[in-house]
Amino acid sequence: MDTDGMPVRLEPWSDEDFALLHAVNAPELMGHLGGPESEEQLVARQRRYVELSADTARPGSMFRIVLLPEETAAGSIGFWETSWDGEPVYETGWTVLPGCQGRGVATSATRAVVDRARAEGRFRHLYAYPSTDNGPSNAVCRKAGFTLLGERDFEYPPGNPLRCNAWRLDLTE
């Protein structure tokens, strides 16, 4: 829960969250990431999310964001292992459903993920890479305490060039 945003709870991603994955795959939510994924891609993503959340030996987890006190699904968020200039780090990403946007849900959920990553304690840094033209996600990074490192080029999904801001949060602070 977060006192500066909407109260949320993070619940581990499960088999029952496939409908939520479909909902966050909407064109208006996936515009900054190359557009919606195909059904086949969603099935593979669902499998990865469930496996990441179930495997405590692997760094990270995916979560369903639950808006409180309504107890309704508001979106998805997670963190996972990646590398930054050869250093193992966490990366985070989120999607909030349109009816829950603009209310502090993403910021509250991001702060909760920071706490989870900090508690896991495997890596020093957590990174986020919102596209440079995604104002709301860049604002979430700023509000959640990340430091802007600058712009970087990514390819996500494969074949789709993307200009992103690289944000880093030191989990030891």
Rank of each mutant, 00 (worst) to 15 (best):
F154S: 13
A44R: 06
W94R: 02
V140W: 02
N25K: 06
W94E: 00
C141R: 03
E173Q: 14
A139Q: 14
R168A: 06
M30P: 01
V89K: 00
M30A: 12
M1H: 07
G86C: 05
D85F: 08
R103V: 04
N165H: 12
G150V: 08
F63K: 01
D153N: 11
E91M: 03
R168K: 08
S131G: 04
V24R: 00
A44N: 06
T147W: 15
S14Q: 08
H22K: 05
L169M: 11
H22L: 08
R45I: 13
S108K: 05
E39S: 06
R142I: 13
G150F: 09
T92F: 00
V66Q: 06
C100D: 12
T110C: 15
S38N: 11
P88N: 09
T3Q: 11
S76L: 12
D133Y: 13
R168V: 13
L149C: 08
R152M: 07
E40K: 04
P136I: 02
F18D: 14
F63W: 00
H125Y: 14
F146C: 02
A117S: 08
T107M: 02
G145V: 12
G60Q: 01
W13F: 13
T56G: 07
Y49S: 12
N160A: 06
A73C: 13
D17A: 10
D115C: 11
L67R: 12
T95V: 14
V50F: 03
A119D: 12
E87P: 03
E120M: 04
R122I: 10
P157W: 03
F146R: 01
E155M: 08
Q101P: 08
V105S: 05
E91S: 11
E155N: 10
L68T: 10
R111V: 02
M30E: 10
G35S: 03
E91I: 03
Q46C: 15
R111P: 09
P36V: 09
M6S: 14
V113A: 03
F123N: 01
V113K: 01
V43I: 12
G104Y: 00
S38R: 07
Y49P: 02
T132D: 10
G78N: 00
A74G: 09
D85G: 04
A44F: 03
P59E: 08
L21N: 05
R111D: 10
V24H: 02
E71F: 05
R142T: 12
W13D: 10
A166P: 15
A73K: 11
A57H: 10
G34H: 02
V89E: 00
T172D: 13
H32E: 07
T132L: 06
T72Y: 05
R142A: 13
L33C: 04
A19W: 03
R45Y: 06
V113W: 02
R64I: 09
